[in-house]
Amino acid sequence: MKEEITEDWLDVELKNTLDEDYEIELEDAVLSLKIREIYERTQGPSIPRREYFTQLLRLQAELIKLQDWVARTGEKIVVLFEGRDSAGKGGVIKRITQRLNPRIVRVVALPAPSDREKTQWYFQRYVPHLPAGGEIVLFDRSWYNRAGVERVMGFASDDQVEQFFEDVPEFERMLVRSGIRVVKYWFSITDEEQQMRFQIRIHDPLKQWKLSPMDLQSRIRWEDYTKAKEEMFARTNIPEAPWYIVPGNDKKRARLNCIDHLLSLVPYEEVAQEDVELPERVFNPDYERAVLPPELYVPSRY
């Protein structure tokens, strides 16, 4: 009887887990019928949903092992996610962190620099966010803003850009020498795919917040961004911290491939866990639970 109860409970928990995944996947599904029809015709079939979730859960289980190993060994890992607007960086970051401990694995997405920060050493505002021992930091855009948006949009002078290219290889070598593993991903999508994703954002009320004036400018300056990206690869792809390009037109495959590749770069091992036993609740026969006023409770509308 006890085994049946345990199996029923595990079944419910598994279904709840899948429900969470479906909720996240709805962000790709909330489209008008017309846009969905066009998107599916241009995108082609993706990986079947059942296979996708099976592989995603398997990889997320490995990420938990990686997390435990990092915490146990005191490793320090930095992962940079770069790419064009709407290339899928946020989607893969969300799947990486979905089941991990935010005290160990955290995301850094810095806003535009303040007037004070503009007068600092360029890398200064990124340094406080670097990991201590036992931490993984995921940068949703990073110091490479200077090689991309700041350069293309004219927020940085030619001299500042040139100084960045001279400094960044040594900066990253310093990080590696200090014991930080530096991983750099560039998410690559085609011109047509970005146009379609922008159209989706324009017509989907749940995604309009993702579309900024800077995103619209990136469409106009597609070729300028391409040239900037090519020079960035040529001057910052160093052996100590190489670039890895993730083909991103198929979102699901991009997520799985990126997570799988990240796991392959770190020689983590499964960490033995201590057995956990739930202690018995202390029961006090003289204690009477207070009756709380009903206005303290959230209304049960669902």
Rank of each mutant, 00 (worst) to 15 (best):
A290E: 15
S114Y: 02
R201G: 01
I47R: 14
N16C: 10
K227D: 14
R36S: 15
D19Y: 15
A112G: 09
G148V: 11
G91I: 02
R50A: 15
I189R: 08
G148Y: 06
K76E: 04
H203M: 12
R301N: 12
R106T: 08
D21T: 04
R72G: 02
P102K: 09
E7S: 13
N257F: 08
M174V: 03
V79H: 01
P285C: 12
F164W: 00
A29D: 15
P242Y: 05
R255M: 05
R253I: 10
R301A: 14
T226F: 08
T236L: 05
A147Q: 03
E82T: 08
I259G: 04
L130G: 02
R146Y: 02
S46P: 05
L265D: 10
A156F: 02
L211D: 03
P299W: 07
R116K: 13
V161Q: 07
R151A: 01
H129K: 07
Y22R: 14
Q160L: 05
V182H: 04
V137G: 03
V246I: 15
Q194A: 09
T42Q: 14
Y287A: 11
G148S: 12
L110G: 04
D158P: 09
R197E: 06
E295K: 12
A112K: 12
I5T: 13
P131V: 05
F233E: 00
E27F: 15
D28A: 14
S86V: 07
E51T: 15
I35P: 04
L278S: 08
K2R: 12
R173L: 10
P267E: 05
Q43G: 09
Q98E: 12
V127W: 09
P169C: 03
L14I: 07
R84T: 07
G44A: 08
F164S: 04
L56V: 03
T42L: 15
E231G: 02
E170G: 06
Q217T: 12
A290T: 11
D167M: 12
S86D: 03
V70P: 00
L56N: 08
L66K: 06
N249I: 06
F198L: 09
T236N: 07
R99A: 06
Q217S: 14
K34L: 12
I136Y: 04
S157L: 05
A109E: 06
S114K: 03
D167Y: 02
V30D: 09
R151S: 09
E230W: 07
K94W: 05
D68E: 12
R177G: 05
Q194K: 11
D215M: 11
V266H: 10
E20D: 14
P102D: 00
W243P: 05
M174K: 04
D275W: 11
S188R: 15
L14W: 08
I93V: 10
N16K: 15
Q67E: 14
L262R: 01
T6N: 13
I220E: 15
I35G: 07
K94S: 10
P279R: 00
R289T: 14
H261A: 07
R221Q: 13
G91T: 01
E23G: 03
L263T: 08
D28T: 13
D260Q: 14
S188W: 10
R151P: 06
M232L: 04
L278Q: 10
V30R: 14
R58A: 13
E13P: 03
V282A: 14
S142K: 00
L14R: 15
R151N: 11
P213E: 05
G91H: 01
E82N: 06
E166N: 11
V161A: 05
K184C: 01
